[in-house]
Every structure is written in structure tokens, then in C-alpha cells.
Design a protein around this nucleic acid. Structure first.
Length: 511
DNA sequence: CTAGACGTTGCAGGC
DNA sequence: CGCCTGCAACGTCTA
């Protein structure tokens, strides 16, 4: 039987290595490529900021253009997804819906609801995995039903499974010709909306542009330097280089503009040709496996994105402080290194992994003692590569709530950045007000004399003292026991002279 | 049961 | 500058 199929794009905004799309083409007499833009669903399940909307719309536009080149089109249908599916299944006599399987609870619920509609309206649902390297269920089974909680153990399980499945072939114009495209005229009704249609600011200054084409181009650029690929060592990359010192491909993986399996095998081929290559956890392939690690743990942990009711998460009495949270989010902590990071995040939607560490440590265990859940929400809104599992997992890591427990190892908001960028070029780029500040003081401008501040054209304020305070914080461990732990706290006693200054630090932050 | 090993990427200081 | 050690030390897992 030849199906009349809707292929539903959710993530997986690509043509290459798209198993569900390929299955649709191979089993159908007509395929409707559809993206449902359900704003109510999206705002209720995720916090998507303007930059992420831009990236999504650009990705859809690119997908539309690629499908057109193959003789098809993309139909972007706005509305509540259940009624959109119901209406169009009936209108187009649909017998099959294909989609990529996803692991987030809200996407799983969506698939279950679509399956429910399928039973009611008489269409089949085919969901195939395309977003991760492995079927995480298999990993759980091999680990005795629970997720491995260390990377080493995770790798041991993967060695039992062997390499991931190889990518499926690219769909061709012939594939699309064999089944009819949607009726003429439909594509015009269901175009990709403009940012202004969605009441999103029209301009984005992010250097990242969404879409499979852009993602593939960036991927090829990086893979061309085989020596760099083979020797890649994550902790040695520079968090504050003016251009990304890592691949910067993460936004394309999180939206599925790029396939992790294709990337995995491209890396394997390069490693095979190299004399020596780095290994997980620090290698490029190791980075893909970290992604897989967090997917696996998230898939089997209740309340993974929360502290309460999350069995792997330390229960800590974080401070509730909306004002300091807001200052952190809007780059007003007073520490140029932290504020530059938050500025890059807000302007570009991407920051280096170690910069994320510095900012996350500052918000949680390092300085402000504010819950990782708050930071997670901010990153979810602002990061183009925001990913349900990876975001929550890393926030637990950085706040020493799970996976990592050395909470006395604090990233210093002054010295950590200075190690790799002593001149403070990164700070000068993202905080232009400090552009002419002497390098000596740029990570702690309040230590410059008033005269020196005047010469640099920027009055920051003055402080005689930068304190390193050792506090005792009460935390509750997994077994409900309360205990006191040391908490290193950096802060400055800084008075703000100019209300127009973007910097100010409340002192002391913890009392 | 306990002791010891272990954990992707801290910091300071020495060479 | 890169690499080393010592520091002080957590929770979790395992022998």
C-alpha cells in the first residue's frame, strides 16, 4: 500500500540523515512536508528568546528552499498542533504521519497525542530516531535499568554496544519525484513567517545563521583542518577568544540542522587517517558522547530539569533573589569577565563552554547562591543551542548538585578569564565602556585609582578591598542529612559613583 | 561495613 | 608558557 503521508518536522530540520523523512518518501504516493508552528505549545514547554526564534525561522526558510530544489516544498502551518493535524489529515486523506522521535517529555506527549489521533482518524504513525547517536533505552538496559552517572561508566556501556548506527542516505530528487509533491498553491498559503509576523524584533546581530546549509558549510570548514580535528582537546580551548575556539556547531545539532551520526562518522574517518588523535572525554567525538550521556540520564530521571523530586540532585536551600538574578542575567554583576560573557550570550546566543562554567558557577555555588534552575531558564531562553537534557545536566554539574561534587573548586571571576586573555580583549569587545582601561586592571577595574579611571574615560567606582570570604552554607544531601559546607565567596566592596555605569556590585553579596 | 579510589576543564606556586 | 605538585576535600562507587 502506498501512503498519503504528512512528514512532521519538529527537530531534525534537515534533509541529510533523516530516517523518518526517507521512510516517508519510500512508502508514499504523496508526501506533505509540514512544520507546525504552535506558539502556545512552544511557549508552554520552552522559553525561547528572540535569537532562537530568528534561528528557527532561518532554519525553516533554508529547509523550504532545499525542499523546493528537490521539487517539493515546506508547509509551515500555524496553530494548535492537534487541530492542525486533525484538519489536514482529513483535508488531505492522510494515511500516515512520520516524525523524528524525541526524548523531551513535552515532545513525547505530542507524539502520544498524535498516535491517539491516528487511532481515532485511522492513520499510522511512524517515528524514527534521528536526533541521538544511540537508542538510550538500550544503554539503560545494559546498565541494569538505571542510567550510568559517570562518563567513564557510560563509555563502558557504549563499548558493549559498539559504534552507533550509520547515517541513512540523502534523499534525492528522484525520491521526491516518485511521490507527488503537495498541490500547487499550498506552499504559498503556508510560507515561513517573518520575525515581525511573530512580533519578534526584526534584526538579529547574532553571527549564527540557522539552517542545514549553513550548518553543513561550517562543518566542512572545521573538518578541513584534519590536524586540528584529530588533536582537539576541549579543556585547552580558549573561552574568551574573539572568535570561537571550538566548532560552534552546537546550535545546528540542537535543532537537528546537522546530524550527530553523520558528524560522528566524519570524525571517525579523520581519526582513522591520523597518526594520533585525542580521546573522550576531551576529544571532539567525546563531546558528542557527552551529549549522549546527558540524554541518557535525562531520559530515565524523573524531574530532571528541577531540583525538587529529582533523585540525582542535591537538595540545597538556594537564595531567592530576583534582583541579583536580574543583574546576573543582564550583565550587571560588576565583574567584567562575567558581564562580558553575559553580554556575548545576549547579543550572539552563543558562549564558550568554559565561559558557561564561569557564569554558572558565579550564579550558583560560586557567588550568588541562586538556584541552578533560574540559570537554566536564562540559558534556555538565550542560547541558540539550548537543549533540554544538556542544559539541565550541565547546570546540575556546575552547581555541584549532581555528577560533580567539588563545590570548593570555584571559578574565580577575576583570575579565570585572565589566564587565557590577560589583555582583556574579550572584555574590551563586549564591554566597550572598558575599551581603554589598562590591562592591569581590566578584570577588576575598581582597583584602578580614580586618576587612572579618569584617564581611561570610565569611572567605575572605588574599593580598597576585594574580599574572599569563607562562609558556611547548610545543604541537604541525598539522604536528607543537613550539613555545613565551606563556601568560597568572592565579592568586592564597590561603591557606584555613576548611576549610568552598567556596573555595580552589591556588597557584601552574602551577609 | 569501611577504606580507598575516583571524578572532562580550580588555584597557587615552582620550575 | 606549559607542566608539575600540593592544597583541601566533596559524594559516590567499589573492593
Amino acid at each position: 500500500m502506498r501512503h498519503r503521508t504528512i512528514h512532521l518536522f519538529r527537530k531534525g530540520l534537515r534533509l541529510h540523515d533523516n530516517p523518518a523523512l526517507l521512510a516517508a518518501l519510500q512508502s508514499s504516493e504523496v508526501v506533505y512536508p509540514v512544520y507546525i508552528l504552535d506558539r502556545a505549545f512552544m511557549t508552554s514547554s520552552m522559553h525561547i528568546g528572540a535569537l532562537r526564534w530568528h534561528f528557527l525561522l532561518q532554519s525553516l526558510e533554508d529547509l523550504r528552499s532545499s525542499l523546493r530544489q528537490l521539487g517539493s516544498c515546506l508547509l509551515v502551518i500555524q496553530g494548535e498542533y492537534k487541530s492542525v493535524v486533525r484538519d489536514h489529515v482529513q483535508k488531505w486523506n492522510i494515511t500516515q504521519v512520520t516524525l523524528g522521535a524525541e526524548m523531551e517529555p513535552f515532545y513525547k506527549e505530542m507524539e502520544a497525542n498524535i498516535r491517539g489521533l491516528g487511532e481515532e482518524l485511522g492513520f499510522q504513525v511512524l517515528s524514527l530516531m534521528g536526533h541521538s547517536l544511540y537508542n538510550t533505552q538500550r544503554i539503560l538496559e545494559l546498565n541494569g535499568g538505571t542510567p550510568p552517572l559517570t562518563y567513564k561508566r557510560f563509555l563502558r556501556i557504549l563499548s558493549l554496544l559498539g559504534d552507533p548506527e550509520v547515517p541513512v542516505r540523502n534523499p534525492t530528487a528522484e525520491d521526491f519525484q516518485r511521490c507527488s509533491p503537495p498541490e500547487l498553491g499550498l506552499a504559498e498559503c503556508y510560507g515561513v513567517p517573518l520575525p515581525t509576523d511573530l512580533k519578534i524584533p526584526p534584526e538579529s546581530i547574532s553571527p549564527w545563521r540557522g539552517g542545514e546549509s549553513e550548518g553543513l558549510q561550517r562543518l566542512e570548514q572545521h573538518l578541513a583542518d584534519q590536524g586540528w580535528v584529530a588533536s582537539f582537546t576541549k579543556p585547552k580551548t580558549v573561552p574568551n577568544s574573539l572568535l570561537p575556539s571550538t566548532t560552534g556547531l552546537s546550535p545546528y545539532f540542537s535543532t537537528g540542522c546537522l546530524s550527530v551520526r553523520s558528524f560522528f562518522y566524519r570524525l571517525s574517518n579523520i581519526y582513522a587517517q591520523a597518526k594520533h588523535h585525542s580521546l573522550p572525554p576531551v576529544s571532539l567525538q567525546g563531546q558528542l558522547l557527552w551529549r549522549e550521556f546527558f540524554y541518557t540520564v535525562a531520559s530515565a530521571t524523573p524531574n530532571f530539569t528541577k531540583m525538587a523530586g529529582n533523585p540525582i540532585c542535591l537538595q540545597i536551600r538556594w537564595y531567592e533573589d530576583a534582583e541579583r538574578l536580574h543583574k546576573w542575567k543582564t550583565a550587571q554583576t560588576g565583574f567584567p569577565w562575567i558581564d562580558a560573557i553575559m553580554t556575548q550570550l545576549r547579543q550572539e546566543g552563543w558562549i564558550h563552554h568554559l565561559a558557561r562554567h564561569a557564569a554558572a558557577c558565579f550564579l550558583t555555588r560560586g557567588d550568588l547562591w541562586i538556584s541552578w534552575e533560574e540559570g537554566m531558564k536564562v540559558f534556555e531562553e538565550l542560547l541558540l543551542d539550548a537543549d533540554y537534557s544538556i542544559n539541565a545536566g550541565n547546570w546540575m554539574w556546575l552547581s555541584a548538585s549532581a555528577f560533580f561534587h567539588h563545590y570548593t573548586r570555584i571559578f574565580c571571576p577575576v583570575r579565570f578569564g585572565r589566564r587565557t586573555d590577560p589583555e582583556g580583549q574579550y572584555i574590551r569587545k563586549y564591554l566597550p565602556i572598558l575599551k581603554n582601561f589598562p590591562s592591569k586592571y581590566i578584570y577588576e577595574p575598581w582597583t584602578a585609582s580614580e586618576e587612572e579611571q579618569k584617564q581611561a574615560g570610565c569611572i567605575i567606582g572605588s574599593s580598597d578591598t576585594v574580599l574572599r570570604i569563607l562562609l558556611l552554607i547548610t545543604v541537604k544531601n541525598n539522604y536528607g542529612c543537613e550539613m555545613e559546607v565551606p563556601h568560597f565567596h568572592h565579592t568586592s566592596l564597590l561603591s557606584v559613583d555613576s548611576p549610568s555605569s552598567p556596573f555595580f556590585v552589591n556588597a557584601p553579596i552574602l551577609v
